[in-house]
Design a protein around this nucleic acid. Structure first.
Lengths: 353, 353
DNA sequence: GTGAAAGCGCTAACAG
DNA sequence: CTGTTAGCGCTTTCAC
């Protein structure tokens, strides 16, 4: 099971009666080769079913044609979608994907980055801008081209291909305030080690402040990105007496929003009648819920493809990745409604209805 | 950006005043090394922040510590979950995941397999038992340890870690027949190049036959695994007059079932009152729908972990993977109901109510 | 115990 | 145009 690892370049050279150098040349389509010799070599390659050993090639060219990606989890459709696109673009350009999952653990991520670097990836995709200092140090020392997706900062610690989480959330807040909402609650993702989740929370808070409003301390809860956890968190947050209950619930992502929506129905809280709910990500299911969920479309596929492309271009040019800001889009659907149309007058916001 | 690829083993040897052979020995914890020398080397490693080049190591040891996986898509939660588990198990055992997506295209898959082999994966995971002949030939010639998941055949073309799709579907049919259903329809996945989808269809057909029933030709449709496509297919299949309409709809997976459920609601077809609907996979959302979807629990995580483990053990032992049959479980929930309790009498089936 | 040397499969100068 | 040579960074006999 270990012997017959296929024909080697030398075998081809022998079979064709030429030197390995010539074989290498036709393989890489570089340098001049007489047509007749080329044909002989190509025949030998076919006959022996020869395939070059990419590992050996990488050792000498210092290019593995492998792109690494380390993501928090695959069990969130938004990352699965992004990686699907990242892989598609990489594959189309001759690169192969090496993938690891960090489970939102920055220390684990750090060891994974080391591992990827040792394995010789040409470029690396990370999610978000918050990473262990050692992670950045490793990347810098090894001079590995890298990019952080899912976030965008003008002067972040690494090149970005992503969007501004806080700004996208501000749009949600504007929508809700414009609809007349004044009492807010938020079901955020776990913020520790997750700058995207944190950015969304601070986006809500600062935009509420802009409107002269605020999130009461007990109206901000966080929970993991699962429907089950979201249902429980919703119950704790909203299960009390109806009086004084918030009229708008901003969720950290669509998974949480789905949980909130389902639990609201179970508890007899009408959405959007008694409570407006918003999500984030625009998962395919969000549009299919009843009512369809108002959310922010996140360009996961575009980011995936864009990040792969940006990495490949940077690798080719021998420079760092160029940052790109990707657009998000507010999708107003059925889970948001006004409580007092045109009520937004006292605050200095640009939304007048 | 290409120069400072970290310290090399020779650097460490020089710094410690020993030979590279000794460095290699302490690195691999093999062979005898005097404690004092070992300490000197370890200090040098730390000082230089040396990390061995896995590619070079792989070249000589013929072991890359990389496991490959080629799946149809990541945009289906069931595969994402399986790969998540596969990666977790591999990572825990020192292996790294190389992932490619075939988009249900057997030819594309074939070239991806070649690529993975060239990249030197130690083991490879494929989904299902249907693959291009060339795919198996490549695997055999290169003697790459491999396993096919998501399916199980006694004498399939490759070792399996999975379950019997047809049998799982038979359980669904038994349930529905037992509930009194006689007029069936099926919304299957695309069968071309997908033996799992095909197995599910034939499972339904042969089990219906066992009960003396059959799927009318116009009551079998197939559609891609998306909610949108499922809604449209459902409409075409069930949109006609209510008279003669089937009372039970078996769906190829949960995504299709979700589409069917949502579209049924839109069309005013009560589920399960007027129509029983079943899914397959037991996605997390399936349990959260209203009503929660009756489905088959597929051991995606268990398969993922099991496949990784089976590969690693086989690689270590230098033999082929041992097949494992994983259990599925029928989950009866809210989308199925009886139309005539105890109606199942005429047929020779074991279900008497 | 340790070092010297050969070589994994390939590419890249450099001669010819 | 083509072959010879020298490694890429590592492991692994085999002498010492």
């Amino acid at each position: 099971m270990k012997e017959c690892r296929g024909a080697t370049q030398k075998d081809v050279a022998n079979a064709a009666g030429v030197s390995t150098a010539s074989v290498s040349r036709v393989l890489n389509g570089v340098g001049p080769v007489k047509p007749e010799i080329r044909a002989r070599i190509e025949r030998a390659i076919l006959a022996l079913d020869y395939a070059p050993h990419e590992g050996a090639r990488a050792l000498v060219t210092r290019r593995s044609l492998v792109l690494g990606a380390i993501i928090p989890t695959l069990n969130n459709a938004i990352f699965a979608e992004g990686i699907n696109a990242f892989e598609a673009e990489a594959r189309a350009r001759g690169y192969t994907l090496m993938l690891s999952v960090s489970n939102y653990d920055l220390n684990e991520e750090q060891t994974l980055v080391r591992r990827m670097v040792q394995r010789g990836v040409d470029g690396l995709l990370l999610v978000g801008n918050q990473h262990a200092a050692e992670t950045f140090a490793t990347l810098r020392r090894a001079a590995v081209t890298h990019v952080c997706a899912w976030a965008f900062e003008e002067d972040g610690p690494a090149p970005n291909v992503g969007f501004r989480n806080a700004e996208a959330m501000a749009e949600i807040v504007d929508l809700l305030v414009g609809l007349g909402h004044r009492r807010f609650a938020m079901l955020a993702g776990v913020q520790a080690g997750n700058d995207r989740a944190r950015g969304r929370v601070s986006g809500v808070q600062s935009r509420l402040a802009f409107h002269g409003l605020r999130l009461q301390p007990d109206m901000l809860a966080e929970c993991p990105y699962t429907v089950r956890a979201a249902r429980e968190a919703f119950q704790r947050l909203m299960g009390g007496a109806a009086v004084g209950r918030p009229t708008a619930l901003v969720c950290g992502n669509d998974v949480i929003a789905i949980g909130a929506l389902l639990e609201a129905r179970r508890l007899g809280i009408a959405v959007p009648g008694a409570l407006s709910v918003t999500g984030f990500d625009n998962l395919a299911v969000a549009a299919e819920m009843d009512p369809p969920i108002t959310t922010v479309d996140v360009p996961a596929e575009q980011m995936g493809r864009g990040a792969a492309l940006a990495l490949i271009e940077a690798i080719g040019a021998g420079r760092a990745v160029k940052s790109t800001l990707m657009p998000t889009r507010l999708l107003v659907r059925g889970t948001t409604a006004g409580i007092a149309p045109g009520a937004c007058r006292g605050c200095p916001c640009p939304c007048s209805g």
